[in-house]
Simulated scan of single mutants.
Amino acid sequence: MTRRTVVLVERRTRAVRLRPADAAFLRDQFAGVVEVNPGGTADRVRLTARGVVGTIDAPHVRLTIRPKLPWPNLRLLLGLEHFAACGAAPPDAELFAVLATEFAERLRAVAAAGLVRGYHDADHAAPYLRGRLRTADQLRDAAARAFPTTFHVTESAFDLDAPWNQIPKSVADAVATHPALPAPVRAEVRAAAAPLEGVTAVMPTDSVFDAAAREPRAGAYTSLLALCRTLGDGLAAADGTPGGGAFLIDLGRAFERHLATGLADRLAAGWSVEAHAGFAVGDTVLRPDVLVQRRGEPRWVLDAKWKRPGPDAADLHQVLAYAAVTGAPRAALVYPGRRFARKVLQAGARTVALVRLPVVGTSDAVAAGLARLARLLAR
Rank of each mutant, 00 (worst) to 15 (best):
A378Y: 06
S272M: 04
A212S: 02
A183L: 13
A162K: 02
A194S: 01
A246M: 02
D43F: 00
L74G: 13
P242H: 11
P358W: 08
R356S: 15
R190D: 05
V366I: 10
A328E: 01
W306F: 10
T150V: 09
V61R: 11
I65A: 06
G252K: 07
V110N: 05
D239T: 14
L248K: 01
R350C: 11
F30N: 00
R62F: 04
P70R: 10
Q29T: 03
L248S: 08
G32R: 12
V319C: 14
P91H: 07
V9L: 07
V292N: 11
A254I: 10
T200M: 07
H178N: 15
Q318R: 00
V359P: 02
G118F: 03
R253D: 11
A237D: 01
A269R: 10
A238H: 07
R106K: 07
A136D: 13
A192W: 11
R190W: 05
V199L: 04
F209N: 00
R14M: 05
Y128R: 15
L231M: 13
S207H: 11
D159P: 08
F158W: 15
D159Y: 06
D364L: 07
A264D: 15
T154W: 01
Y128L: 12
Y335P: 01
C86F: 01
A323V: 04
P204D: 05
A269N: 07
L373V: 06
E81G: 15
F151K: 09
G262H: 00
G252E: 13
T351Q: 10
W164N: 02
L63M: 09
D289W: 07
T150K: 02
K343Y: 09
L74W: 08
V290D: 12
T261S: 14
V153C: 11
V301M: 09
I65L: 03
Y221S: 09
E102G: 12
L80A: 11
A323T: 00
G278H: 13
P288V: 00
H317T: 09
F25N: 06
